[in-house]
Design a protein around this nucleic acid. Structure first.
Lengths: 111, 111
DNA sequence: AAATATACATTGACAGGCGAGGTATATTGT
DNA sequence: ACAATATACCTCGCCTGTCAATGTATATTT
């Protein structure tokens, strides 16, 4: 399970939305890009990934449609909505402040 | 509930251990110090706090003893163990790398 | 013909966070 | 005197997110 599986908990939505900010994409490919970006150190488990898609779609952050592949397995593409873009920006801001907060809280202060 | 309640999920143990690196302390006071450090933007909920103490004690990261107050409510003090110190250092390192990883994953890349 | 890669999906168990409730003592306000 | 607030601890039960296991279907490689 390599590092940090627990620490990334809660960032799944942000990660997926970030991937979709660059354009429509489908689940398998999104997960591949996450693995590449982290040099194989992290990946979303499939169950987690697809649960997140349902959650985000129900929340109106993304919409989906079937691709029209003539060959290979079918793909369900996801598209970020305007609301999703807002949510993404909000999550980014929250992450920035949470990061500072956590840094402040877990460092031992030298007085 | 202010910011980032969800984002700090999973950092409870690190936060508590960090507080105890500075010396023994008791629950109520630990939580107060967290509120102060974050200017009231964050606090551990009591249920979360005491659950974490049990978890950490069972894991051998901390030990506890009753204070001998002559007045006021009784206090249970916690002390970080050597094993707890190791765990703390490990969690700090994991946080550093998780932070980088998340930053990389949630930013939209400009190519 | 079998194995692997692509691609999606669900179920059920588990863990952590937390609202709600409870106990007890000391101080402050009216 | 009495109520309210602050200090200080604790537990139960729900909710949510993660994930192992399992299943489906198609295409390619061995």
């Amino acid at each position: 399970m390599s590092i940090a599986s627990d620490l990334i908990r809660g960032h799944t939505d942000s990660i997926i939305l970030a991937r979709l900010m660059g354009g429509d994409n489908y689940g398998y490919e999104i997960n591949k890009s996450i693995q590449q970006k982290t040099d194989g150190k992290y990946e979303l488990k499939e169950a987690t990934l697809y649960t997140a898609f349902r959650r985000l779609e129900q929340a109106g952050c993304i919409s989906s449609y079937w691709g029209n592949e003539r060959t290979g397995a079918r793909r369900r593409y996801y598209s970020i909505t305007d609301s999703g873009r807002d949510t993404y920006e909000k999550l980014i801001r929250e992450w920035q402040s949470a990061k500072e907060m956590i840094d402040k809280l877990i460092e031992t202060e030298e007085e």
